[in-house]
Amino acid sequence: VDYIVEYDYDAQHDDELTIRKGDIIKNVKKLEEEGWLEGELNGKRGMFPDNFVKEIK
């Protein structure tokens, strides 16, 4: 499942992704941690907030 970024987010920890509006995040999975998703961007896998992105259908 792929998501498109709607709002910029700067990573706060090493396991998070810095994302920018218009980025496409690939292979996204829901995490047990409420409010977070995990996906791949530019060869890096990491977490990001689910309210900054929208699923591409």
Results as ranks from 00 to 15, higher is better:
I19H: 01
D23G: 04
M47D: 03
I4H: 08
R45F: 05
E40P: 00
D10I: 15
G35W: 04
L31A: 15
N42G: 10
G35M: 05
K54V: 15
E32V: 15
E33M: 13
F52R: 08
N27W: 02
D15L: 09
V28H: 02
N27T: 10
V28E: 01
F52E: 03
P49S: 07
E32K: 13
V5W: 02
G35D: 05
Y3I: 04
F52S: 08
V28W: 02
G39K: 00
I25L: 14
H13L: 15
D10R: 05
I4S: 13
I24R: 14
K29D: 11
I56F: 01
H13G: 09
D2I: 06
G46M: 01
F48S: 01
K21G: 12
G46D: 00
D8S: 08
G35R: 06
D14E: 13
I4K: 08
F52L: 06
N27S: 13
G22W: 01
E34G: 12
E6M: 10
D15W: 14
K21I: 12
G43Q: 10
R20K: 08
R20H: 15
Y9R: 09
Y3E: 02
D50A: 13
I56K: 06
L17T: 02
E40N: 09
E38I: 05
D50Q: 10
Y9V: 02
V5K: 00
G35V: 03
V28K: 01
K26L: 06
I4A: 10
R45Y: 04
K44I: 12
V53H: 05
L31G: 11
P49T: 04
E40L: 09
V1L: 13
N27E: 11
A11E: 11
K54Q: 12
N42H: 13
K29I: 14
N27D: 15
I4W: 13
G46H: 01
V53I: 08
E40M: 08
H13P: 01
E6H: 13
I19V: 07
T18L: 03
G46V: 03
E40D: 08
I19D: 00
V53M: 04
N42Q: 15
L31R: 11
E55F: 00
M47K: 10
E40S: 07
D50E: 14
W36N: 02
D50R: 10
Y7V: 07
E34Y: 12
F48R: 00
R45D: 02
V1G: 15
D23F: 01
L31W: 10
V1Y: 15
L41T: 08
Y7I: 14
I25R: 00
H13Q: 13
L17S: 01
F52D: 05
L17W: 00
D2W: 08
M47A: 10
V53A: 11
Y9M: 03
K54I: 08
V5N: 02
I19K: 01
I4E: 13
E55R: 06
D10M: 12
Y9D: 00
V28A: 12
K21V: 08
E38S: 09
K44A: 10
I25Q: 00
E33F: 14
D15G: 11
V53D: 04
V5H: 01
K30Y: 11
K30N: 09
E32I: 13
I24Q: 04
I4G: 08
L41Y: 09
N42D: 15
G39I: 00
D8K: 01
K26D: 03
R20Q: 11
K26V: 12
W36F: 08
E16S: 03
E16G: 05
K21R: 12
D10W: 06
I4F: 14
V28L: 04
W36S: 03
K29R: 12
L37R: 06
W36Y: 07
H13S: 12
G22T: 03
E55S: 03
F48M: 09
G39F: 00
G22Y: 01
R45M: 05
D50H: 09
Q12F: 08
